[in-house]
């Protein structure tokens, strides 16, 4: 790993982190069964991932910047599991299941929206 790639990862993770903290602490969202800021971050990250997969960049540094740096720091899997864990601990199993389904479905929906947005145009 040379200096250029390290710089790409650092830049991507800084932008991802700041954007995630901005979304997490500046908005108050409560929609659907349990859609909150964490879910919003993850759904947006899926949208960007769809765009990235459709573009399919060959440049290694570009992949490091956007996939490892930006998307890795922007999306968070452990907070998603934590939301489910909170519901699991308060024994709201139906709501846990519905929240799980809605996040997965919305993520893949937005993934394909991003994917076909690039493929069509």
């Amino acid at each position: 790993m040379d200096l250029n790639s390290i710089g790409c990862v650092l830049l991507g993770s800084t932008v991802g982190l700041v954007l995630r903290m901005f979304v997490k602490y500046k908005f108050k969202i409560k929609k659907g069964f349990y859609i909150n800021n964490t879910s919003l971050v993850n759904i947006l990250a899926s949208f960007f991932l769809g765009i990235l997969v459709a573009l399919n960049p060959i440049n290694h540094n570009l992949l490091l910047l956007f996939y490892v740096g930006f998307l890795g720091c922007f999306s968070t899997f452990s907070s998603f599991i934590y939301d489910l864990f909170v519901l699991f601990k308060s024994k709201q199993f139906v709501r846990l299941f519905l929240h799980y389904i809605e996040v997965i479905v919305l993520s893949f929906l937005f993934f394909y929206v991003g994917y076909f947005l690039i493929k069509v145009f």
């Binding site: 995630r20 991932l49 720091c73 999306s75």
Partner: peptide
């Protein structure tokens, strides 16, 4: 530890790409 380390360590987009 949570917002900085854990959230950046795990990645939802990696999970979606794995399933894709």
């Amino acid at each position: 530890l949570l917002t900085g380390f854990c959230s950046c360590f795990t990645s939802f987009s990696g999970f979606i790409l794995f399933l894709y």
